[in-house]
């Protein structure tokens, strides 16, 4: 009997430790959100969201940064979403188990592990210099697009995998060509999942700073970008500036908090929408 109670005590303590680990992670998350939420809320006003910075960025708003992040994310999406989806279609619908396929998969997994600053370096050479896009929205967006590509491929392939093989065989057995089968009997059931997955990737890209540092993000611009060849202000870069590079860091701290809050609401808002939609979709498919 004694051994049994010992066993129970050990288990209780062990599980307690696991619960504590979970609790710690939740506490950290809560701390993050609470600190930024409570201290950032005071800075949020219509002016903050709709006006440009004033007085050497010690007053005014962050609208150019919001607008810039929006534009650059659109470029990112233009590159990463269609390419990610079609690469996923190739891998899941066409590719056979060959050495080349394994190489493609290996490359995708390794691409998602390449540091974001390295993407930045690559963007400087490829887009800014070789393609002569200069430091611009276009260069930054394409750099982020390449970084997002492995995520959108993986997410899209996951969505394709949820389509039962019976749909594919059924279509083929009726005399559908491969592409007819994909277009009419695979994509309609996987595109919603693909899109939610890619939104997750885009949300992450929108919050990234390192890849845009040298490819197009600007410290401060008195006007909004007028073309894709212009430099731009971006929310994450603006937060970095306000938190570390500003000449009156403590004075502008409330503005930095406000920027952080807007960024987090934007990114997590996109994120959560996608996560919720995805969970719904999965449940529906079961």
């Amino acid at each position: 009997m004694k051994r049994v109670t010992r066993k129970k005590i050990v288990q209780a303590l062990g599980f307690l430790a696991l619960r504590a680990a979970m609790g710690l992670v939740l506490a950290v998350l809560f701390l993050f959100l609470y600190d930024i939420g409570s201290k950032g809320a005071g800075s949020i006003s219509w002016e903050f969201l709709s006006k440009a910075p004033r007085k050497g960025m010690t007053a005014g708003g962050i609208f150019p940064a919001i607008f810039g992040t929006f534009l650059v994310t659109v470029i990112t999406a233009f590159l990463a979403v269609p390419l990610g989806m079609s690469a996923a279609i190739y891998l899941n619908e066409y590719a056979k188990q060959t050495r080349l396929t394994r190489l493609i998969r290996l490359s995708i997994r390794n691409l998602s592990g390449v540091p974001s600053i390295v993407y930045g370096l690559f963007g400087v050479i490829l887009f800014v210099n070789i393609m002569s896009f200069g430091t611009s929205i276009l260069s930054a967006g394409l750099t982020l697009g390449l970084m997002t590509l492995p995520w959108t491929i993986t997410a899209s392939e996951e969505a394709l995998k949820t389509v039962p093989n019976a749909y594919r065989e059924g279509a083929l057995a009726l005399g559908a060509t491969k592409w007819q089968m994909i277009r009419t009997n695979v994509l309609p059931y996987s595109v919603p999942g693909m899109l939610t997955g890619t939104v997750l990737g885009l949300a992450r890209a929108a919050g990234e700073t390192a890849p845009i540092l040298f490819t197009g993000a600007a410290f401060f611009l008195p006007f909004l970008p007028r073309s894709l060849g212009d430099q731009f202000m971006a929310l994450p870069y603006h937060l970095y500036i306000m938190a570390t590079q500003h000449h009156a860091i403590l004075q502008v701290r409330p503005l930095a908090y406000g920027t952080a809050l807007v960024l987090i609401v934007l990114v997590l808002g996109l994120n959560m929408t996608a996560v919720i939609v995805r969970y719904r979709l999965r449940r529906k498919q079961r």
Binding site: P164, A166, Y167, A173, T177, N185
Partner: peptide, 19 residues
Amino acid sequence: VVELRRRVGMVFQKPNPFP
């Protein structure tokens, strides 16, 4: 093969209607 499969229909083990 596409034309072949149109001419030779198949009914599977498990009913597989499309959604």
